[in-house]
């Protein structure tokens, strides 16, 4: 029962993340998702033990507090508030999120998973979280939203790992978490620098770095 509610909450945060244009709000949602993800291992483990609690505390601190603070800081320095023109409009993002969920349920039902899997809902939900994160990366323009998408995707991977908590050593998760930490740092710094160089954090500008010369800045014939 409790796990179902947590999982539902996870899904709602997914929808909230794709539905909202305000970046501060998005960060809060991702933070909330981090907290939910953090609580999961305690419940999944089923009995009172030190290991899941340590993991939970660590995850909640990193995902629920540190990352959001970092992101909030880079948001402030980059001075953006909104994702103005996403590649996929918000109503369709919501519908896509639902479709992703349906798809991942289908995928989940196709996988043959070990019987000890806790909470049959967790796997499809983890799948859909991963895919929602990817969708966010693909469909948004601002670098910060893409970082958020990355975080959501990581949350999904983590949730998938949690489902395997009893079989798998948690080292894997810790490794992933460390990866993430570095990645967010790098991205935060990158965002900071992009915004300082270009006055905004629109990733379109990065297109200019490609070999192909974009049409709009092709050098015109000098007179």
């Amino acid at each position: 029962m409790l796990i179902n509610i947590l999982i539902t909450f996870l899904l709602i945060t997914n929808i909230g993340a794709v539905a909202s244009s305000r970046l501060t709000y998005c960060i809060k949602i991702v933070a909330a998702q981090g907290v939910v993800i953090g609580i999961l291992p305690c419940i999944i483990y089923g009995e009172f033990a030190l290991l899941p609690i340590v993991i939970a505390i660590f995850t909640i601190t990193v995902k629920g507090i540190v990352f959001p603070l970092l992101l909030g800081w880079s948001l402030k320095t980059a001075q953006v508030a909104r994702e103005v023109e996403p590649l996929v409009s918000y109503p369709f993002s919501i519908i896509t999120a639902v479709l992703i969920f349906i798809l991942s349920f289908w995928l989940g039902s196709r996988l043959s998973l070990p019987a000890s899997f806790c909470g049959y809902l967790l796997v499809p939900v983890a799948f859909s979280t991963i895919m929602t994160g990817l969708f966010l990366i693909v469909s948004r323009v601002k670098a910060l939203t893409q970082v958020l998408g990355y975080l959501i995707m990581e949350n999904g991977i983590y949730a998938f790992g949690v489902a395997l908590l009893r079989e798998q050593p948690l080292l894997v998760e810790l490794g992933v978490l460390l990866d993430m930490f570095v990645a967010v740092f790098v991205m935060g710094i990158a965002i900071f620098h992009i915004s300082r160089e270009f006055d905004h954090i629109d990733t379109h500008v990065l297109d200019n770095l490609s070999d192909r010369i974009p049409t709009d800045i092709r050098p015109t014939e000098e007179t």
Binding site: I15, A19, I94, I95, Y120
Partner: peptide, 15 residues
């Protein structure tokens, strides 16, 4: 979004 919530509920119900 309301539609999506109802849809989620339905998917939960079907599963």
């Amino acid at each position: 979004a309301g539609f999506a919530l109802a849809m989620l509920a339905l998917i939960f119900q079907i599963m």
